[in-house]
Amino acid sequence: MSAATIRRRGSMGRGRRAARIALHAWCGLVFFFLVLPLVVVFPISFSSSAYLQFPPPGYSLRWYREFLADPNWVDAAWRSVLIGSVTAVAATILGTLLAISLVRGTYPGKGAVEQLVMAPIALPSIVYSVAAYQLFSTLHLVGSWQGVAVAHTVHALPLVVVVVGASLRTIDVSTEMAAQGLGASWFTAVRRITLPQIRPALVSAAFIAFISSFDELVIAMFLGGINLTLPKKMFDSILYEIDPTIAAVSVLQIALVVLVLVVIGRFGSGVRPTS
């Protein structure tokens, strides 16, 4: 290698290194920005003070006790878990059927169905809430948890279809064919061969649907009436009575998400299709 090439490589390396350092510094700042809010709620939730003080003057579990002792908080939390679970089950079942239909089927109007299914993603919750209110009040669903679950299912449906559809596209269609050739009916082939292969996606989709409902405020605010969900209760308490209870709730909620992510990792890391 000549001296000239070495020199040129050296200078190029320096320029590149400077760019790399700048990139890493920038990303470090952005990561800090992203994680910062999650980090601050932890110490505050363990504060012994009655006010939002940082750093807290002392540490205690009083705000967790406060949360668990207040039936308003606990009721709201259970209601949200209930609505989220129903949403997750309903959206995963309906969304998986839709995904199979859209990925595997060929029928007139399929494009229109696809657009219809995706539409709720782009529609702001506020618009949907105002629209649904009329219908739901006619059906006497306003103020019931069932009504909120139905509306949440509509919002979660496109998320399920995207996740399950993407997974369906990666698995080998000929396995379904092979199963039928070996004596399985279409239904048996789907149940025993196709669905187990996309199980990680089904688990993820159910989780995403659950979180999308569990975290949803606007629809629940409009359609939930006096039956507060956890986000609505948090919203009210942030607006009117800032105290560290909400930080304790936040930590519990983060913990729940992490727990479910771990569960997903456990069940989601199952079999992947051979390439």
Partner: peptide, 13 residues
């Protein structure tokens, strides 16, 4: 994955 309200609350703090 963290609740929008949790994050908003954290920004208020």
């Amino acid at each position: 994955w963290t609740s929008l309200l949790v994050r908003t609350y954290a920004w208020m703090i």
